[in-house]
């Protein structure tokens, strides 16, 4: 009787605490789906390189691939645009089921005119987007794009930026990212950070994520 009492007194609190902790963890797991597809809820007002308005409504027309970069970028941006050009070609007739955007990370230097000239070297379906800093920020934030201007002195600067493509489905949900591997090909990564297999079949993975 005495031993039973001590046992209860000692073990019961720890059992209670453990239960509370487990319930708490379980509750969080059930309610937060940290990596699941989330609809992009944002209103923004930007311009495309042809001088037309570009806003959230345009993302609802078709699935989209968005890349954020700048024309003063020496390797990752032109390399990504070249790989995208190759990918659009490989997609064949399916290519027209997707919209392709190059959104500037550097609105100070990348005007509509400069974007149009720069992008004329790549597939004509890639649309350049620029606009006011504040409006661009809304789009960066909505898609978790990291953009940071870095002063290099003597009036020079560079921009640290997310260098992967955002894959958005027709319901404007971010369903994954596309990353180049060694500057030679893309790999598709889902929202759980998992590289889609087969790794070298980007087109198949892209179509699966976008339900094309």
């Amino acid at each position: 009787m005495i031993t039973k009492h001590i046992l209860l007194k000692r073990i019961l609190p720890s059992i209670l605490i453990t239960t509370v902790v487990l319930v708490f963890i379980g509750y969080n797991f059930a309610n937060k789906k940290p990596n699941a597809a989330q609809q992009i809820q944002v209103n923004f007002n930007l311009q495309d390189m042809n001088g037309n308005q570009f806003n959230q409504k345009h993302l609802k027309q078709k699935p989209s691939l968005l890349f954020f970069g700048f024309t003063h970028c020496p390797d990752v941006c032109p390399a990504s645009l070249q790989l995208l050009t190759n990918l659009i070609e490989d997609l064949g007739p399916d290519a027209d089921k997707i919209n392709y955007y190059f959104v500037t990370a550097d609105p100070e230097r990348d005007t509509t005119k400069i974007l149009k000239q720069y992008l004329s070297s790549f597939d004509q379906r890639i649309l350049g987007i620029t606009g006011k800093q504040d409006e661009l920020k809304k789009l960066y934030n909505a898609l978790d794009i990291y953009i940071q201007k870095v002063d290099l002195g003597k009036g020079n600067y560079t921009i640290d930026h997310t260098a992967s493509f955002m894959i958005i489905n027709k319901d404007t949900e971010k369903v994954g990212t596309m990353m180049h591997e060694g500057f030679s090909k893309f790999i598709v990564i889902d929202n759980y950070g998992k590289i889609q297999t087969p790794k070298d079949d980007v087109i198949k993975n892209l179509k699966k994520l976008l339900q094309l």
Binding site: T71, H72, C73, P74, D75, P78, L81, I114, Q117, Y118, L119, S120, S121, F122
Partner: peptide
């Protein structure tokens, strides 16, 4: 690399 049209930088 060959530069895209109007590029101001290269490596």
């Amino acid at each position: 690399f060959f530069t895209p049209n109007g590029a101001k930088v290269s490596a």
